[in-house]
Write a protein that binds this DNA or RNA. Sequence first.
DNA 1: CCTTGAAAACCGACCGGTCGGTCTGATACT
DNA 2: AGTATCAGACCGACCGGTCGGTTTTCAAGG
Lengths: 199, 199
Amino acid sequence: MNAAAQLADNRRKLLEIAAEEILENGFQATSIGDILTKSGLSKGALYHHFPSKLTLGYAVFEEVFVPECATRWEPALNTSDPITSISTLLRAQVSDMTDEMIRLGCPINNLGQEMSPIDEGFRQRINREINHWCDELAAAFKRGQAAGHVKTEIDTRQVATFFVASIEGAIGLAKNAQDRTLLEACVEGLIGYLEGLRA
Amino acid sequence: MNAAAQLADNRRKLLEIAAEEILENGFQATSIGDILTKSGLSKGALYHHFPSKLTLGYAVFEEVFVPECATRWEPALNTSDPITSISTLLRAQVSDMTDEMIRLGCPINNLGQEMSPIDEGFRQRINREINHWCDELAAAFKRGQAAGHVKTEIDTRQVATFFVASIEGAIGLAKNAQDRTLLEACVEGLIGYLEGLRA
DNA sequence: CCTTGAAAACCGACCGGTCGGTCTGATACT
DNA sequence: AGTATCAGACCGACCGGTCGGTTTTCAAGG
């Protein structure tokens, strides 16, 4: 491996291990020392790549959590029949979730709940991302309306917001209970709601 | 004030200040030192009443957060027309929420999201409480069915679970955005869903 | 092809400070 | 006198972050 690749590799390793630790313990309770031990790298290496713990946290959010999430949801958005495609993806995502994922919940929402009230940098990043999802979802519903699959009288943006809230709430409930059946129940409730929006 | 009353008073003061700190910073990031400073009491006093920080946290949950929450929701549950009474209470609760409450979110859900994956004691307490809400809500819907106000074909327990998840998710979204209009939008979405359950 | 020099990358001992928790007394009530 | 109720000095562990020094890399000059 050449030097540039090694360099990028070390940075990536730090990011991914930090992501694991943050997902498991939250940002504040994540220890730099633990990240170093797990990665086998030194404190010098970490602080060479990231000027502070906070900066590392922002990078984890933007370079690990957000892309992960985008990959997961994109397939459902570019269709003319969003209610069907979203319902299908929803069920598939839930049944694909490991018990570990149930236990840990949504990385982005976790971070938001922990950090939004106490760090404006996190808050803005997370808020921007959630708005982005709502926008995309609302656009998908609008396309559904144009294609005649979705009732025209609904406020697409409001429906999108309610959808995101319900999903995040459902993941949170299942995380507390460590019980995927809770998540399944909520998803069926949500799908029932969506079906009510069909034209 | 006699001695016994003073004693109980000190314990209560510690509980309430600890509750404020936990709500603001989360449990792990809450410092015993800060609680002592704010209360004007000493470390000796705190560790006389509570053997550990964790025990204090459990007590805050059971003696502050849970009763607060119960007071807030009980009025909507003992009626024959739950959809109407819940919708009314929901709108009232949201418009009564201060900006501070929007910023901080739901104490119980906050604690659950932070502590459930890493402390079984918190997890069980929180899970028990959430189950209790779902039970009460489901019972209210059942009474609504018996009174002919709610569709008989719905699974009341599933609806109750979805309801709780959506509320918690909505509070979480509004907390991230620090924007009560998000909460209002979600509540209208949820009320729309409930209206669809009318017999 | 080799040497060289400076910059990039990395190392880990160390720092001040904070943490939760303990312990020894002092005080006040019974 | 004896016991419940503190007060606060103190403890070791750990925290994020710094810093002086070492190694690696790589282009330029010969």
